[in-house]
Design a protein around this nucleic acid. Structure first.
Length: 266
DNA sequence: ATGGTCGAATGTCGA
């Protein structure tokens, strides 16, 4: 089974790229982030004609996540337990950042769009840390109930866990994504039993999944590694390969993120 | 040229 995760930065703007990507790489399950659409705004006809089931979760124009699967999609859950809604001091805004379902042979996959954090002093930064802790709690529960659970946490974590995951640490002084609290929150998820199953095959500086549209970051190879596939022990032992599809960042109409692909053989 | 981009519920914000 081939799974993938991709921050698509608007599914409506890039449906053609999604369809081509699924076909090109023979993908069974694709988790999307930043769909930037409510489900009723999406035309899923072409995906369904290609043999995929789709579950989309979007409540506003900002975020939104989706799961696309041709190997079953059942027991769909939206959002994490214990996650505070945002913003607490405003009204009428609810975010959609997590969606899970069971695919293939009993694999629970979470499509996750971790809050960006904006700036260190912004309330959204504290919200990001609380959100990551809620993710860790849910992930821990899954493995405490069944240590052999097949579970995978995929998506845009908006955290660069290591210095080598950004092109220049000095650029990020005083900025989000690289602070110790964010990295500790990320490590807590890993320490709960969910290893980065892509890094072992693609380690070292310059292995990125995101390049800002601005300032010619992509041609200058100035990127960040913030999109991950974190697998439970049962998933870790099933990984037979992985790659980051840098080609998808090229050309007109690209998302600012590249897809991350993992092959699993249970 | 000392910046350079996108997408959206666009005339501005969030990433």
């Amino acid at each position: 089974m081939r799974i993938a995760t991709w921050n698509i930065n608007s599914l409506r703007a890039r449906m053609d790229r999604v369809l081509a990507f699924l076909e090109r790489h023979d993908v069974d399950v694709l988790a999307l982030q930043e769909t930037k659409a409510k489900p009723e705004q999406l035309d899923l006809t072409a995906l369904q004609e290609a043999g995929y089931e789709v579950s989309a979760h979007g409540l506003n124009q900002w975020n939104g996540v989706a799961l696309i699967s041709r190997v079953g999609l059942s027991d769909v859950r939206t959002e994490l337990p214990d996650v505070p809604s945002w913003p607490e001091d405003e009204t009428g805004v609810v975010e959609a950042r997590a969606l899970s379902g069971v695919v293939g042979d009993g694999l629970r996959i979470w499509s996750l769009y971790v809050p960006n954090g904006r700036e260190l002093e912004h309330p959204h930064y504290a919200y990001k840390l609380r959100w990551l802790e809620a993710l860790r709690a849910e992930a821990s529960r899954t493995l405490s109930e069944d240590p052999a659970a097949r579970a995978v946490l995929v998506g845009d974590f908006n955290v660069a866990p290591m210095d080598e995951d950004v092109w220049d640490m000095s650029f990020f002084e005083g900025k989000t994504h690289v602070t110790e609290p964010e990295r500790a929150a990320f490590r807590a998820v890993v320490d709960a039993g969910y290893a980065d199953v892509v890094r072992p095959d693609h380690e070292g500086p310059g292995v990125y999944t995101y390049w800002d549209y601005q300032a010619l970051r992509f041609p200058k190879k100035e990127g960040m590694r913030i999109d991950f596939v974190l697998g439970s022990p049962a998933v870790q032992s099933a990984v037979s390969g992985s790659f980051i599809d840098r080609e998808e960042r090229k050309g007109k109409g690209a998302s600012d993120h590249a897809p991350v692909v993992v092959d699993l053989e249970f």
